[in-house]
Amino acid sequence: MYKIKVYVTLKQGVLDPQGKAVEKALHTMDYDQVQDVRVGKYMELIMEKSENVGSKVEEMCQRLLANPVIEDYRYEMEEVVGQ
């Protein structure tokens, strides 16, 4: 089995309203060092072992998990022991 960790964030250059709100809050808390905040999504997928897992994950990100018009994604794969 594979455990896939998918991270989705708004593209650089696309204004992130939620990230901006969090950034402002951190500034009011006197964390002046904070330069930028981007809020994203984290998903975990458990997948059966097969040869083309990577290309399947890529496809799922493109078609559903992220919206490539405004979002970037990346993922990590690790092998786990199935139940």
Partner: peptide
């Protein structure tokens, strides 16, 4: 319609969240 590609672009959360 945006998600399905029948119209171009995408929707984000409102500016004031």
């Amino acid at each position: 319609l945006l998600e399905s590609g029948l119209l171009p672009g995408a929707m984000k959360q409102n500016r004031d969240v």
